[in-house]
Structure formats: C-alpha cells, structure tokens
Amino acid sequence: MKYNFPITKNPDPKAKPDPETLRFGTDFTDHMFIMDYEDGKGWHDGRIVPYGPLSLDPAAVCFHYAQEMFEGLKAYKTPAGKIQLFRPDMNAKRTNRTNDRLCIPQIDEELYVDAIKALVKVDADWIPQKEGTSLYIRPFIIADEPFLGVRRSRHYKFIIILSPVGPYYEGGLTPTKIYVEDKYVRATDGGTGEAKCGGNYAASLKAQEEAHEKGYEQILWLDGVERKYVEEIGTSNAFFVIGDEIVTAPLDGTILPGITRDSVIALLRKKGMNIVERRLTIDEVVDAYKKGNFKEMFASGTAAVISPVGELCYKGETMVINGGGIGPIAQELYDTLYGIQTGTIEDDMGWTVEVE
C-alpha cells in the first residue's frame, strides 16, 4: 500500500457474533478509520482507532443541511484464507462523483482504497466464512463544521466502519415481493438520484413503510415526472427479462450507478446475452406479463448481490414471476458473482483486490 496509518488498538475487544445467526448491519468490529478535512489543509491525520461514539457539535452542518454521503462494499475470505475486496476502485470513483454533487471535497482514490485495506486488515478476524456472510464495509463522509447557514462546510470527517453481516434479506435468495410505487417520488432530473447520500433514502422511507404494511419487502420506483418508466428498487438496481431481452434502466441521472449493476451487465455481455439499457414503461411490463413474455425479474446491489423478484404488484394487480421462484439468469449471476467475490470461481474479470 502507498499509504500507511497509525493504529490505536482497542483495549477492550468485543466478543464476535455467532456466524449462524448474523443479521445485516447490527454488529460492528473493534476499530474504525477516521480522517479529517479542513479548508486550506486538505485531508489529513488518517488513523485507525477503537470503534466508538463520535463527538460532534450540535450545530454540525450534517445534522441541519444533510451534507453527507456514504458507500458500501464487502470483504470476503477465500477458501485459501486470502482476504479480498470486490471492485473497491469503483467505490472510490463513485464517492468522488457523489462528493462533486454535494460540494464535498474530492478524496484521493488510492488513499481511499488503502484506508479500507488497512482497516480490514486490522479487523480481519471479524470476517465470517459461513455461506452467505461477509464483512460489510461502510465508508462515509460527514460535514462537521458548526454553522447554521446554508453553504458548504469547511470541515469534514471521512470515516470507515465494518460490520459482519448475514444475508440482506432474511430469506437469502428466496424471491422477494415488490410493490410498484406510483404516488411518491424518489428522484427527478437534476436532483441527487445518482448520488449516494442519506437524503435519498430518508425520502424513500414513507413509501417503503406503506409497502411493508401491504406485505411487500421493497418498492419499485417509477420516474418522477411521468410516473410511467421503471427506475430502481429501493436499495438496488432492477433487471427485467422480457422475451429475449434483459432490460435495465439507463444511467440518466436519476438512479444510482450500481457497481453490482455494472458487473451484471459486463457478465451478461460476456455471455453473449441480449442486455439492453433503455427506458421501460410499467405498462410494457404489465403487457409482457399478460402475454407470457415477462420471464424473470431480479435486483442487483452490494448488500444482497442478486435478489430475485417473485411477485410484482401494480395498481392492485399482482404479477407472479417465474412461478414465484428464482429464475435461471438470476441464479447463474448470483453463483458467478458470489463465486468471484469469495474466491471459489476464478476472477477472469480483474475485479477482486487482495488485502495483504
């Protein structure tokens, strides 16, 4: 690694959770990474310290004007005991794209990846090895200047925390039920839809809560102007297998440029499959279902990797997809991606990065 960081070891390490009962995002490791930013000085004093509460001024900009961003990726242990990350350079690049949109200072991408590697190496014994588990990595940046005024902050903290996790959905690869949201709006052209920031998710909670009350795990967003084009699922990008096409929404500024999405598209193209990035109306989806051409639907994202969809509800009409079971394309994609990530399949795409 080009960058090295001082380490303060946790004097009171925690007991590690049982890998058999791991949930998503509830347990955290013994250490975290922190680096500060100050106008005129830049990013400085990166260090690894014991995991614990932060001390922030009540007037910190992140609390009042939501100037913050976050990322997510995972670390895995291979059968040979090596530790590897999946495409961390893409997370670094996406961080800087989000930073640009939110007026957060750019961060050196090599430093970003080295900070992740250093922290994962310190807490390597927290990486679970049970099937379907991993070490989730959450880098984030918050504006911590105490100031009650609408302008960009002059001070920031870049922080990384780690969490050993089980499957994002309790059912693992059990197909999910998705509700098509046509009342609330997540993003529109010119907004922050393509940025990975907390405000996007806070704005989605109302719709998600209402969908849960109706018995659905997640929502499928429609475009914010005409409410007719399918965009993305609450925590992931959506793919539709209609006829001989695999269709996903284009990156037009309103959806997140998912790293798993990019990986799925690359794998499908490598296999010679007809993957198309185009605008797709919900009416076209319904019509394909009625004609028997809607063969499969799945979502892609860091948390779940591949999540098959077994049921889609729109305006009170329920579409049961592929008999409610996982489709062959989703299954093959999951097996390939998870195999590359965990080292059980050779990485001929050059996506994995070893932590040494």
Rank of each mutant, 00 (worst) to 15 (best):
G272S: 10
V264P: 03
R261V: 00
V241C: 13
G253A: 06
A266H: 14
I242S: 07
V247H: 11
V241N: 04
A249G: 00
I233L: 05
I255R: 03
E245A: 09
I255K: 02
G243L: 15
L256D: 06
T260E: 09
N237P: 10
L268R: 02
V247N: 05
G234R: 04
T235S: 15
P257R: 07
V276A: 03
V247E: 03
T248I: 09
D262G: 10
D262E: 14
R269D: 05
T248L: 12
D252I: 09
I246R: 01
E245K: 15
N274S: 04
L251K: 08
A249V: 02
E245T: 00
V276P: 00
R261W: 14
I255P: 01
I255D: 03
P250Q: 09
V276Y: 12
R261N: 03
E232Q: 10
G258N: 11
D262S: 15
I242A: 07
S263T: 14
G258K: 10
T260H: 12
E245V: 04
E245M: 02
S236D: 01
P250W: 13
S236R: 05
N237K: 10
R269H: 12
I265L: 14
E232S: 14
T235C: 09
N237F: 14
K270M: 06
E232N: 09
A249E: 02
